[in-house]
Protein backbone atom coordinates (compact mmCIF):
# COMPACT_ATOMS: atom_id res chain seq x y z
CA UNK A 1 0.00 0.00 0.00
CA UNK A 2 1.48 3.29 -1.05
CA UNK A 3 -0.10 6.66 -0.90
CA UNK A 4 0.58 9.35 -3.44
CA UNK A 5 1.73 12.88 -2.86
CA UNK A 6 -1.59 14.11 -4.29
CA UNK A 7 -3.57 11.95 -1.88
CA UNK A 8 -1.58 13.34 1.02
CA UNK A 9 -2.37 16.86 -0.19
CA UNK A 10 -6.05 16.05 -0.56
CA UNK A 11 -6.27 14.52 2.91
CA UNK A 12 -4.36 17.45 4.40
CA UNK A 13 -6.88 19.81 2.83
CA UNK A 14 -9.80 17.81 4.23
CA UNK A 15 -8.14 17.80 7.65
CA UNK A 16 -7.21 21.49 7.42
CA UNK A 17 -3.52 20.86 8.00
CA UNK A 18 -1.03 23.04 6.18
CA UNK A 19 1.91 20.79 5.37
CA UNK A 20 5.40 21.68 4.22
CA UNK A 21 6.78 19.76 1.25
CA UNK A 22 9.10 17.79 3.54
CA UNK A 23 6.19 16.84 5.75
CA UNK A 24 4.15 15.67 2.80
CA UNK A 25 6.94 13.27 1.90
CA UNK A 26 7.22 12.04 5.45
CA UNK A 27 3.48 11.53 5.83
CA UNK A 28 3.26 9.76 2.49
CA UNK A 29 5.91 7.35 3.71
CA UNK A 30 4.52 6.86 7.23
CA UNK A 31 0.91 6.59 6.16
CA UNK A 32 1.98 4.13 3.50
CA UNK A 33 3.70 1.89 5.99
CA UNK A 34 0.79 1.99 8.45
CA UNK A 35 -1.73 1.32 5.72
CA UNK A 36 0.36 -1.57 4.57
CA UNK A 37 0.28 -2.92 8.11
CA UNK A 38 -3.49 -2.49 8.52
CA UNK A 39 -4.01 -4.22 5.19
CA UNK A 40 -3.53 -7.35 7.24
CA UNK A 41 -7.23 -6.99 8.06
CA UNK A 42 -8.12 -7.81 4.48
CA UNK A 43 -6.93 -11.39 5.13
CA UNK A 44 -9.89 -11.84 7.46
CA UNK A 45 -13.21 -12.91 6.04
CA UNK A 46 -15.77 -10.67 7.72
CA UNK A 47 -18.66 -11.60 5.48
CA UNK A 48 -21.86 -11.40 7.52
CA UNK A 49 -20.13 -9.93 10.58
CA UNK A 50 -22.16 -7.13 12.14
CA UNK A 51 -19.95 -4.04 12.56
CA UNK A 52 -19.55 -3.10 16.21
CA UNK A 53 -20.36 0.59 16.25
CA UNK A 54 -21.43 0.79 19.88
CA UNK A 55 -19.74 -1.44 22.41
CA UNK A 56 -22.36 -1.00 25.16
CA UNK A 57 -25.76 -2.70 24.99
CA UNK A 58 -27.36 0.60 25.92
CA UNK A 59 -30.18 2.42 24.11
CA UNK A 60 -32.37 5.50 24.45
CA UNK A 61 -30.31 7.61 26.81
CA UNK A 62 -32.17 10.88 27.14
CA UNK A 63 -32.30 14.07 29.10
CA UNK A 64 -35.48 15.91 29.87
CA UNK A 65 -36.34 18.99 27.87
CA UNK A 66 -35.41 21.47 30.56
CA UNK A 67 -33.58 24.75 30.21
CA UNK A 68 -30.71 25.48 32.52
CA UNK A 69 -29.22 28.94 32.76
CA UNK A 70 -26.28 29.42 30.44
CA UNK A 71 -22.90 30.38 31.90
CA UNK A 72 -21.84 33.99 31.70
CA UNK A 73 -20.81 35.06 28.23
CA UNK A 74 -17.50 36.34 29.58
CA UNK A 75 -16.67 32.83 30.80
CA UNK A 76 -17.41 31.31 27.43
CA UNK A 77 -15.44 33.93 25.56
CA UNK A 78 -12.53 34.07 28.05
CA UNK A 79 -10.38 31.65 26.06
CA UNK A 80 -11.18 33.11 22.64
CA UNK A 81 -8.26 34.49 20.62
CA UNK A 82 -10.32 37.37 19.19
CA UNK A 83 -13.69 38.75 20.24
CA UNK A 84 -15.84 41.65 19.12
CA UNK A 85 -19.32 42.65 20.29
CA UNK A 86 -19.74 39.45 22.27
CA UNK A 87 -18.89 37.31 19.27
CA UNK A 88 -15.94 35.36 17.96
CA UNK A 89 -14.12 37.31 15.31
CA UNK A 90 -12.70 35.37 12.38
CA UNK A 91 -10.99 36.38 9.16
CA UNK A 92 -12.99 36.58 5.96
CA UNK A 93 -14.53 33.40 4.63
CA UNK A 94 -13.51 33.73 0.98
Amino acid sequence: MTISFEEVEHVALLARLQLKEKEKEKYAEHMGSILQYVDKLQQLDTEGVEPLDHILPVFNIFREDQVKPAPKREEILANAPLVEAGQYKVPKII
Binding site: R63, A70, R73, I76, L77
Partner: peptide, 15 residues
Protein backbone atom coordinates in the same frame (compact mmCIF):
# COMPACT_ATOMS: atom_id res chain seq x y z
CA UNK B 1 -29.76 22.47 28.35
CA UNK B 2 -29.34 25.88 26.70
CA UNK B 3 -32.50 27.74 25.79
CA UNK B 4 -33.85 27.22 22.28
CA UNK B 5 -35.31 30.69 22.14
CA UNK B 6 -34.95 32.91 19.09
CA UNK B 7 -33.56 36.41 19.14
CA UNK B 8 -31.38 36.50 22.27
CA UNK B 9 -28.24 38.65 22.51
CA UNK B 10 -25.32 36.97 20.67
CA UNK B 11 -23.71 34.09 22.56
CA UNK B 12 -26.01 34.25 25.56
CA UNK B 13 -27.80 30.95 24.91
CA UNK B 14 -24.57 28.98 24.77
CA UNK B 15 -22.62 26.62 27.02
Amino acid sequence: SCSNEFGAEPNTNVC
